[in-house]
Design a protein around this nucleic acid. Structure first.
Lengths: 251, 251
DNA sequence: GGCCGACAAATTGTATACAGTGAATACAAT
DNA sequence: ATTGTATTCACTGTATACAATTTGTCGGCC
């Protein structure tokens, strides 16, 4: 009935003028940015999804994003295509893109695969790690120990920890497979590490994994890594169950 | 306008003129193609790599591909970006892209991960398969049996077989992870199914997998699938060892 | 009142122009 | 001859204009 005068159905999820100004401050010509606008767009969109500024299920169009980020459609298009191939966005041929949304079943599927891959990475790492890698892991552990109640610091540390193990496994296909799964983590919302008890338990498991790696105990590393993934899923599930978040039924 | 013969200059490591003509016949105005040029470009490049018309290690530029396929740089660029994210091409920021090449170690890594994922898919399928899926698998088996010496028919059947199992596993993340690994298969060169004995053994294993699935014997399905992957790697390795090793053709 | 076709709006798909980057090359100075 | 510097060149990164396509809406017709 109401004639569509504007193209802003997803208005509430789009950052407005304030954010726009903040972002497009990137335009300094002399700065050695070295990142293409497409990469910037990709990261911005991903971040906005992770932080909930763009809601899951929202409808995105190239021009909206382009004007939001203050660039032309070309790099935005490239970024959206990339996010589509990652699975974060769902392409609709002439109608824009939808931000994918995951339900509890999807989450279970994700963790089932992680439970397959991450223990394998830990085991491979245990067989290949050299002194340098073990030292790097220990350094992360120490930093984690000091940041257990500081999620903002803990989250990148956690990522580094898993990256080192993955790199140490020296299997590009394992890395690719895990990356394909991790790509959808921004859709899960807040990190588990915001939860203090979970962070402590996760840190203890990290320590156990490094201990096993240092002893070249691949079996133990694999087992602890599997437990680590399981624990992560449990925390997710209890957090969802405990909070008031309910699945919205609207299509 | 869309003239089909454009300036075909500076074709260095490109397919020859025959291929060029064959491809650019795509511009029929009435055809309900429904595929974007970017998708066409993506498929053409992938196919050319798989068939060896574009050598691994070759240097590709957007303009070369664009003039080869008779389209503008925009869809070509999109396709190349996609192939880069798949890992088939290696991007060099302002200098084009290289066709990735895999050595024996890479191949071992790939099969190590497949040995992790495909058995899991078979097991999940064994737990979830309904009559329809089992019938579909049996139909494929029958067709395979008739085409054991016809690789051109066998190859798509093989893909369908694995696709059905994967879909039946009903885990989008497992699918994504396997897809990430499979994406680099075009770099491996000729299919194992060109080898008669291998094709027969693979068919027997397929049959054993379906039998296990039908009996809901997840453990057995998993074991046979693992053996299937191992056998595939062995064939690859012996073929490489036996045939002319053309590793260092060019730097 | 409901169905059907044409028109209009919105959005993507594609082409192309132009600017920026980094390597190769030519040239001058030592 | 060698090295340092300027120029050129091929290529990508980005913006923008235009074509194609889908969908929703409005009017007419049964």
């Amino acid at each position: 009935m109401a004639s569509r005068s504007r193209s802003k159905r997803a208005v509430r999820s789009m950052p407005d003028e304030g954010a726009l100004q903040r972002i497009s401050a990137r335009r300094s010509p002399a700065a050695g940015d070295a990142r293409s606008l497409a990469e910037v767009a990709c990261d911005e969109i991903r971040l906005a999804i992770r932080e909930g500024r763009i809601a899951t299920g929202a409808h995105l169009t190239e021009v909206d994003i382009a004007s939001w980020l203050g660039m032309s459609r070309t790099p935005v298009r490239e970024a959206m295509r990339h996010l589509q191939s990652e699975g974060l966005l769902l392409n609709q041929p002439f109608r824009g893109a939808l931000v994918m949304r995951l339900d509890g079943e999807d989450m279970r599927q994700m963790f089932a695969v992680r439970e397959l891959l991450e223990p394998a990475a830990a085991a491979a790492c245990a067989m290949r790690a050299g002194p340098a890698e073990i030292a790097a892991l220990r350094a992360i552990l120490d930093e984690e120990a000091l940041a257990l109640d500081n999620p903002a610091a803990l989250i990148p540390l956690n990522r580094q920890f898993h990256d080192i193990i993955l790199e140490c496994a020296r299997n590009q296909f394992l890395s690719k497979a895990i990356a394909a799964v991790y790509a959808l983590i921004p859709l899960l919302g807040d990190s588990n590490l915001l939860d203090g008890p979970h962070a402590r338990e996760a840190h203890a498991q990290h320590r156990a994994i490094v201990d096993a790696i240092e002893r070249r105990d691949a079996v133990r590393a694999e087992a602890v890594a599997r437990e680590h993934v399981r624990h992560s899923l449990e925390t997710r599930l209890t957090r969802v169950g405990g909070s008031s978040v309910e699945k919205s039924r609207r299509k």
